[in-house]
Simulated assay, not measured.
Amino acid sequence: MKIFKTIFTLLLVAIFTISCSSDDGENGIDGINGIDGKNGIDGKNGVDGQAGAVGAPGAPGTANVIYSKWITAPVAVAETVDGTAGMSTSINAPELSEDILAKGTILVYVSFGSGTYTLPYTSTAGGFVNTITAISTAKKIKLFRFRHDAGGTVNLPTSLSWRYILIPGGVAATAGKGVKADYAKMSYEEVCAHFNIQQ
């Protein structure tokens, strides 16, 4: 009888335990999302700094311009050029090409005690009006002096110094601010300054 009661008690406990095990409750409703905060006000842009001053223009380069040192010429000899009698000598200009002859500018200068002058140069040296001019050919420049009255000749002394500047046709011929340069009308000093050539 005690065994029966014990079994009956255990059976009741088991039934009670099973009947009391509750199922999970339903999930609650999700809460409403909070309202996003307002964006902050953008800060003001800073004031732009002042532009720097424009730099001074650089000196024109001499990359394509060819120039000689001051040189002397051989003793002049009497010669008639185009029917004009005079005295002539020559200096070598190995860089003087056919292309420069055709398209470029050839400047020749003579220097003596009183200064430096662009050829053609006219004076009254020897007591007569006369002109020294340059006659250019490939790789050589002839220096020719003739009297205007065709009455004789005036010598070209070996004490004179000569220099040439060769400007190829591709070098921009400007004197600044878009002005077309005529190098033949510029002084020796102006040409040297323009091309940054040491005098």
Results as ranks from 00 to 15, higher is better:
S123A: 15
S123M: 08
T124G: 14
G126E: 00
G126R: 00
G127K: 14
F128G: 02
F128P: 00
V129T: 15
V129W: 15
V129C: 09
N130T: 06
T131C: 12
I132H: 09
I132M: 14
I132Q: 11
T133N: 10
T133R: 11
T133Q: 12
T133K: 13
A134K: 04
I135V: 03
I135D: 05
I135R: 11
I135P: 01
I135Y: 06
S136A: 15
S136F: 06
S136P: 15
S136E: 09
A138P: 08
A138G: 05
A138E: 12
A138R: 09
K139M: 07
K139I: 01
K140P: 00
K140I: 10
I141S: 03
I141N: 01
K142W: 03
L143R: 07
F144P: 02
F144I: 03
F144E: 07
R145Y: 08
R147E: 06
R147H: 01
R147D: 01
R147C: 07
H148W: 15
H148N: 14
D149S: 08
D149F: 10
A150T: 08
G151K: 11
G151F: 06
G151D: 05
G152E: 03
G152Q: 03
G152A: 07
T153L: 06
T153K: 03
V154I: 14
V154D: 04
V154H: 06
N155C: 00
N155H: 00
L156D: 05
L156N: 07
P157D: 08
P157T: 09
P157E: 05
T158G: 01
S159C: 04
S159I: 11
L160M: 07
L160P: 01
L160G: 04
S161N: 03
S161V: 00
S161F: 01
R163N: 06
R163I: 11
Y164V: 02
Y164D: 01
L166N: 12
L166E: 04
G170K: 09
G170N: 13
G170E: 12
G170F: 08
G170M: 05
V171C: 11
V171N: 11
A172H: 10
A172P: 02
A172R: 09
A173V: 05
A173H: 13
A173R: 14
A173M: 13
A175S: 15
A175L: 12
G176N: 08
G176K: 04
G178T: 12
G178N: 14
K180H: 05
A181N: 04
A181V: 02
D182Y: 10
